[in-house]
Design a protein around this nucleic acid. Sequence first.
DNA 1: CCAAAAGTGTTTCTTATACACCCATGT
DNA 2: ACATGGGTGTATAAGAAACACTTTTGG
Lengths: 245, 245
Amino acid sequence: MKSELISNLSVDCVVFGYDIITKSLNVLLIKRYLESEDKKDVLVNDYVLTGYHVFEDETLDKAAERVLKELTGLNNLYKKQFKAFGDPDRLTNPKDLIWIESQKFNLRTITIAYYFLLKTEDVEVTDNVSKAKWFPVGDLPELGFDHKQIIKEAYEDLKIKCLAEPIIFELLPDKFTINEVQDAYQSILGIEIDNRNFRRKLINKKYIIPLDEKQVGVSKKPAQLYMFSKDVYDKIFQKNYLISI
Amino acid sequence: MKSELISNLSVDCVVFGYDIITKSLNVLLIKRYLESEDKKDVLVNDYVLTGYHVFEDETLDKAAERVLKELTGLNNLYKKQFKAFGDPDRLTNPKDLIWIESQKFNLRTITIAYYFLLKTEDVEVTDNVSKAKWFPVGDLPELGFDHKQIIKEAYEDLKIKCLAEPIIFELLPDKFTINEVQDAYQSILGIEIDNRNFRRKLINKKYIIPLDEKQVGVSKKPAQLYMFSKDVYDKIFQKNYLISI
DNA sequence: CCAAAAGTGTTTCTTATACACCCATGT
DNA sequence: ACATGGGTGTATAAGAAACACTTTTGG
């Protein structure tokens, strides 16, 4: 039994990759390029999110995971379905129409948008068939369809979730320093944090576990390495009902 | 130009209504009833959310608003699109198959789920053609499709949002007492709150405005009435970046 | 010895929490 | 007069915020 694609339903994936070196939150985008038949004009030349239509016998989550796997080769990443985008005119910019015509997509396609969290370094971007490329979330190129809006809303959601859940560690290597965590928060939230207060707060968490290891190969005082224990976190986590209005 | 329905795309609305008298958060559900041809057997007898397919030229938000308007006659309510449900088997319980056969729906329908907030008393439920009825969110009847799951996730989302934004006032009348707000929080979150601390906290907010009015027609000391000013709230609101992990 | 980032303590202030009785009103 | 829910104050604890210098290391 061969499975068919659902012609008007897709998933789109906002792939967030944090670059611990440049301290930059990046988005993985795919080049979209089309020339006129005589090759005299460039009709489409911009970027889009990775995404694809959903199969008839596939859950939305599986579709998103499949798309991500195809692009990055990675599994089991943190993912969140954050919004459905389905405006009738979401694909109907002139440029997008040209593109869709060349691809035989349905004009009224609803897309279920996900975001994924990973480390920029975990994706091989150099020899990539899809011409995938990282862009800082604050400095995106020209984007097709409604993907600028989708990224914006993904980022908003991510920022809120960052404050409430320890998903920052999905963006960092298994072993990290306290300052690296601080840098990640600062970069993603666009804020400054006092180092002494932040250190104290983090080190006091039972699920931030100091390792018997320090940084190596740095030309300065090597920092203490820590890991995050999801097990401990889950065990001691308790919902607080603080009403912050 | 006549608009067609999209056969595999629907919106479903979790209509939350707060009953200030019984202090109960309710969900508005619609009776689903089907007899066999000889009328000897009841084939389907349960409840479902209100929802309907989306028109080709309609946004998802408009579709949800249309569905809600048809059921309740109400406009401009607080609404949130909180999740898309699209499992291949989400409509394929035996009971649901019987129902869908009788309704000619598409078996692989993706639904975009919304929730709406209002006051139970604002909906006339008595002479309703859809056989709509309120049920406490904690005491739901048997539900068709995956609607139990949809309601559960809507409620989870609502609880989180309640803590971060002043949406509680969408569930309360324009003029309310402090204790009514407290009751609403307690009922929705399932917690106990200290009355003195809660009063102080709320009364100190600039956007909780005391009126020159007290309760009337109560057989006890009439309570001071307040209103919520969204304008003031929006003006003085500032994002706090407290990392609570 | 120098550059660079790591690491460290104390004080103040705000906010949450815990807790029990009197008051005003309608009947 | 009484029953009912409305309304009030204080003390403690916890956590957030502000703030500047010393230490350790590799080069």
